[in-house]
Amino acid sequence: MRSNVSEYEFIAPGSLDAVLALLSAEPGAWTPMAGGTELMVALGAGRLEQRKLVSLWGIGELRGITASADWLTIGAGATYTDIRENAAIAKEFPLLARSASWTGAIANQNRGTLGGNIVNASPAADSPPVLLVYEAEIELVSAQGARRMNYSEFHLGYKRTVLRPQELVMAVHLPRGHRLPVEYLRKVGTRNAMAISKVALAGVGAMQSGKVQTVRIAAASLRETPARLSMTEAVLVGHALTSDRIQAARKALLQEVKPIDDVRSTAKYRAHVAANLLEEFLNQMAASES
């Protein structure tokens, strides 16, 4: 432990209203903490700059997973374990259950939350690519009210989001009844478990009469934020998946990603492997109609 915990303040008001009131009263002073799987690591390493922490753990309004006719709503406080064990997610949004199973260890999955994964805004996070291809919406809440937007508009830049200091992520909404026949998700980490992704690619799509009718592709660790690869999608929609078309898609991907060299991998490797994963996904697409 490289921090002196006596220098930190940690409170647990216990209800959503009380937390939101606190955030509004002193905007920016308090950092919300749900499972703590990110912040506690920073605390242990002596690099947690935020000294005032407010707990979201145990606030029931944030944690439920509920279904309406059109939406499956996952509370921001739902843990990876909650997501892995939910029958509706397993049936209708299986990529999300899979990505949740890849995050950390069982202990991390019991504490870590979907909202935390999103707000932490790591470009390498496991959940966001899946939320992007499922066209999720995100609901933000403050004492002043709520707002809802496409999740694709949430991330602004490296570790920057639209979230205001007095706001919390309330829930993620997934549109029901639009499941596409081909779903793809692959994470390339530094090892098979307990790993941060070097590159990850999620894809969903449908073919019609030998051509790409719909396709959505998103990636982790390829840009400064989790990212939809819309240029690549545009190259594909309406076209047959010939080898030339697949090569064109690879090129488009390489143009729109901006990977970096870091302690886990190299930019070249990330870009090349992402293109390989794209090709693997497109081969699945091509085979889906036969």
Partner: peptide
């Protein structure tokens, strides 16, 4: 296949278990 000490001017720069990768039971 996994364990790489990344040196920077004589110092191990990946001195955390999250970045010094050892195989897990899954590997």
């Amino acid at each position: 296949l996994y364990e790489k000490v990344v040196w920077k001017d004589g110092r191990m720069s990946n001195n955390q278990m999250t970045n010094y990768i050892i195989p897990t039971a899954a590997d």
